[in-house]
Amino acid sequence: MSTTTTRVEESRRRALSGGKRLVALVGRVRELGLIVVLLAIVALVGLQTPRFLTPGNFEQILLSIAILAIVAVGETMVILTRNVDLSVGSTVGMTAFVCADVLKNHPQTPVILIVLLGCALGAVLGAVNGLIVALGRVPAIVATLGTLYLYRGLDSYIAGGTQVSAYDVPDSFLSLATTHILGVPALIVFAAAIALIFAYLLRATRTGRELYALGSNPEAARLAGLRAERLIFLTFLLCGLLSGFAGVLWGARFATVDSGAATGLELQVIAAVVVGGVNIFGGSGTILGAMLGAIVLGTIDNALTLLKLSQFWLQAIDGAAILAAVTLDALITRWLQRRLRSGRQR
């Protein structure tokens, strides 16, 4: 009898450590996989066009995704809680226009005030989303689909068909996007800093962990006494705020802004987040992953340009990337479940 017991315990322990290795591996598989994909693209394209491998080009890639990446940080937090924010493109567009327009009419406004204005406006728009979803209990996809329209409409109303061009705004504003910090373009520094800060907060604070908990099992979160409404409101607020900041940078980078700015950005942002391994149903994924997702998509876009493939392929490839990423996830999960089931074989 005692020998059976120890044998059972031993096999159980072995199953435990085996399971741990398996799960840990899968946890990292997404990010590792992305890095492999990234390296493969770099190698393949690099062989074709050496110019692809220059530091200048890498900087170009990072620059091209910096603004998107900032929004993706906010979107990641929203998606972690089992929600989604489709209105980010409209928020970016509206803050970009409003900020540029204020500068056009009051060129003396200090840039820092404009940045604050953009963030505040974004935060307000995010808060409206948060209220509708958290208190109004409207599904996030419906609420933010509505505000996608609403914010874009307000943007058009404010713009009234006008546009702000580079000549209308002071250089100090435009330099937000062109200056370098320690030799690195400011946009990249901003994006990296924001990503690092929020990645750290998600890891180091109770609130950060609670976002994961809420997305992982809302019922368990309620039983554990987490305040779901507050957490959801907070993520939408932060997502709006980051989108607002991204809007300011959009204005500075593209200089010419009308009411159509950043249309469709939400799609690219969600593509980056999902490709980066954030579960669309919440509970798992990291900001680092989302950043990798953005970099992979940015690299593909860049490679297409360098390979002189038609720009018209870009959108199709974004779409295919989303599909490939979720398909891969589904297959991995299925495989993992089968492994865990047969691991418990009697």
Partner: peptide
């Protein structure tokens, strides 16, 4: 049991009342 499937055992045990250092970090 109603738990958080994506989180590890320790996090499940301490969710909502994690031990924190002086700076409020977990």
């Amino acid at each position: 049991p109603t738990l958080f499937p994506d989180l590890d055992v320790a996090e499940n045990v301490f969710m909502g009342h994690q031990p924190r250092d002086r700076l409020g970090r977990i």
